[in-house]
Computed example of a mutant assay.
Amino acid sequence: MRRRLLALVGLAGLLLAGCSSTIPGEPVAAASPSSDRQLVQGYFTELNAAAAEGAATQRDFLQRSQHPDYLDELCDLGDLTLNIDPAMSTLRVDPDWVPPGAGRGAGHPRGLVYVLGVSVSIRQDGALLGEQIGSQRVVILDGKAYGFAPCPTG
């Protein structure tokens, strides 16, 4: 149980990585094309629908939707599921973002990177283990939304 709790805390930290730093200047929301907005919303709708069906279904979704430049960065959440509620009003372009700990000098992912605020609920066998608020990136590449599966630590 202690190991699972440590993994949960590590996962929450990973989801929020980069959220605690302060960026100088004033925030300015960039207008995103409505088709990209729909793709991003659809990504979260599918992610949550997969979670409702169970860990195996969500794992399959995360594998299918992992950004193609980072297929080797995919982690297994085990029997955990994530429900992610996106704050679509916060959606903006994040052109300089690089995934933390990206292996082999991968650099900036291909496509248009968006960032938005999210509320994440972490569940195990339907029981709520924790909730976090943070930000998440979704990339639009060749008309499809891709994400970056979180990796628990511990």
Score class of each variant (00 low, 15 high):
1 M>F: 11
1 M>D: 12
2 R>Y: 08
2 R>I: 12
2 R>Q: 14
3 R>W: 13
4 R>H: 14
5 L>F: 14
5 L>K: 11
6 L>A: 07
7 A>S: 14
8 L>V: 07
8 L>G: 07
10 G>D: 14
10 G>H: 09
10 G>E: 10
13 G>F: 14
15 L>I: 01
16 L>W: 09
16 L>D: 13
16 L>N: 15
17 A>T: 07
17 A>H: 07
18 G>D: 09
19 C>P: 06
20 S>L: 15
21 S>L: 10
22 T>N: 00
22 T>A: 04
22 T>R: 10
23 I>F: 06
23 I>P: 00
24 P>S: 13
24 P>I: 01
25 G>V: 03
28 V>Y: 07
28 V>W: 08
29 A>W: 00
29 A>C: 11
30 A>V: 14
33 P>L: 11
34 S>Y: 09
35 S>K: 12
36 D>Y: 08
37 R>W: 04
37 R>Y: 02
38 Q>L: 15
39 L>I: 11
39 L>S: 10
40 V>A: 00
41 Q>V: 13
43 Y>I: 12
44 F>D: 09
44 F>R: 10
44 F>V: 08
46 E>Y: 03
47 L>N: 05
49 A>K: 14
50 A>G: 08
50 A>P: 02
51 A>Y: 03
52 A>Y: 01
54 G>L: 11
55 A>C: 03
55 A>I: 03
58 Q>S: 12
61 F>R: 09
61 F>H: 11
62 L>T: 00
63 Q>P: 02
63 Q>A: 11
65 S>Y: 03
66 Q>H: 01
67 H>G: 05
68 P>M: 06
68 P>C: 00
68 P>V: 03
69 D>K: 02
70 Y>C: 04
71 L>M: 09
71 L>N: 08
75 C>Q: 06
76 D>C: 12
78 G>C: 14
79 D>C: 08
80 L>F: 11
81 T>Y: 02
82 L>Q: 03
83 N>H: 15
84 I>C: 09
86 P>L: 07
87 A>L: 06
87 A>V: 08
90 T>G: 07
92 R>D: 10
93 V>S: 08
93 V>L: 13
95 P>G: 05
95 P>W: 03
97 W>Q: 01
100 P>T: 06
100 P>N: 08
100 P>K: 04
102 A>H: 05
105 G>K: 10
105 G>Y: 13
108 H>S: 13
110 R>M: 01
110 R>W: 04
111 G>M: 04
112 L>S: 02
113 V>Y: 03
114 Y>Q: 05
116 L>I: 06
119 S>T: 15
121 S>K: 14
121 S>D: 13
122 I>F: 07
123 R>D: 10
124 Q>L: 13
125 D>W: 00
126 G>V: 05
128 L>E: 11
128 L>D: 05
129 L>M: 15
130 G>T: 05
130 G>A: 09
131 E>K: 15
134 G>W: 04
136 Q>P: 01
136 Q>N: 09
136 Q>S: 07
137 R>Q: 08
138 V>I: 15
140 I>A: 00
141 L>V: 06
141 L>N: 01
141 L>P: 10
145 A>W: 01
148 F>S: 05
148 F>A: 02
149 A>K: 02
150 P>I: 00
150 P>Y: 04
151 C>W: 06
151 C>E: 02
153 T>L: 13
154 G>Q: 08
